[in-house]
């Protein structure tokens, strides 16, 4: 087990190196530090000195890949690629353009992101599975047909409209909850309610359909026939036999996104003014703050890889046929 986890972590390193190379290419090669400086300092009136200053402040004044000026191993290490990569791998994200510490910001903003993402995820999963099971239970009736139609309609609506509509109806017309904003502590509840509700509803269409397909696939298998031949009631067949088998794809599919919940949701957070990592990212994109975007890309990749590892581990928990080796 430990051996397996260790091996998976080792496998993760080349992937992270790859991610790092891609981001480095996007942020430093396609767009050189000179371009960045010019953009930050204003396109027109920049003196070469100002650019050099700007680069020096951030340590961007080294060559990209190969430093002819340095000696020995320094030729490779005293470069932008080396220094920026090692910093990322130490989770040292540096400072943003406005001078704030990115690492600190991330730690601070993780809380609000999780406050939205975790309840949305859990409630959404429960709602989706429940509705999907109901549809399978009532299969070949009009109840199921209308359910199918409803899910197609729900999934044809852009997520943006769920948010806009929800804010308008619940927040503006009914004045039930604040339209946007966030407070820490217990007060957060008022602010979290609407985004979570909207998050769950907007995911129902595709979620229910997806789980329904999984359930239907399981329903066609031989062991279900055996269970029926035992004379078990349909409910037990569904909840005991089918659900337990369907939990394998469902759980493992859910586990992979679990770590990514830290990243928050871009759209929801920005619409509701939640000071989480999602809105942090959007703000960075709009402000073209590449240091933050790079940090978030790296963070996302790390979390994704943790998700993959957790998926493999969760297989061993829910599927007796899988043993780690």
């Amino acid at each position: 087990m430990l051996n397996y986890i260790l091996r998976r972590i080792l496998y993760a390193i080349p992937i992270l190196v790859g991610v790092n190379l891609i981001t480095f290419f996007l942020f430093f090669v396609v767009n050189t530090p000179d371009d960045m400086a010019r953009m930050q300092l204003g396109m027109k009136h920049v003196t070469p000195e100002a650019i050099d200053n700007w680069k020096q402040e951030r340590g961007y004044d080294r060559p990209l890949f190969w430093n002819d000026a340095a000696a020995g191993a320094g030729q490779a290490t005293e470069t932008l690629l080396y220094s920026e990569s090692t910093k990322l791998f130490r989770f040292d994200f540096g400072v943003a353009d406005d001078g704030r510490d990115i690492g600190g910001d991330i730690r601070e903003r993780m809380g609000p992101s999780l406050a939205i993402a975790v309840p949305t995820f859990i409630l959404g999963l429960m709602a989706n599975i429940t509705f999907a099971l109901l549809m399978v239970f009532f299969r070949a009736t009009y109840l199921e047909l209308s359910g199918v139609v409803l899910t197609v309609v729900l999934m044809s609506i852009s997520g943006l409209f769920y948010i806009i509509g929800g804010q308008f109806v619940v927040g503006k017309l009914m004045h039930l909850v604040p339209i946007s904003g966030y407070e820490s502590g217990l007060d957060a509840f008022r602010f979290v309610l609407l985004p979570v509700a909207i998050g769950v509803i907007s995911g129902i269409g595709s979620g229910v359909r997806w789980y329904r397909t999984i359930f239907l696939e399981e329903m066609g298998k031989d062991y279900v026939r055996t269970a029926r031949a035992k004379g078990l009631p349909e409910g037990r067949v569904l909840f005991h036999h089918v659900l337990r088998n369907a939990m394998i794809p469902i759980l493992t599919g859910a586990v992979v996104v679990l770590p990514l919940l830290f990243m928050g949701s871009l759209i929801t957070e920005s619409f509701f003014g939640i000071p989480g990592l999602g809105s942090y990212t959007i703000e960075a994109i709009n402000a073209q703050d590449f240091a933050i975007v790079r940090a978030m890309v790296f963070l996302g990749a790390v979390l994704y890889i943790i998700g993959l590892l957790l998926t493999d581990l969760s297989y061993t928990l829910v599927d007796p046929r899988v043993r780690l080796s």
Binding site: K221, Y223, T226, A229, K230, G231, L232, H241, R244, P320
Partner: peptide, 18 residues
């Protein structure tokens, strides 16, 4: 399963794997 029981051709798939 009570008065009439049945066994099938494919024992590999007829049992619940989990």
């Amino acid at each position: 399963g009570g008065r009439i029981a049945m066994i099938f051709q494919e024992p590999m798939t007829s049992l619940n794997p989990v």
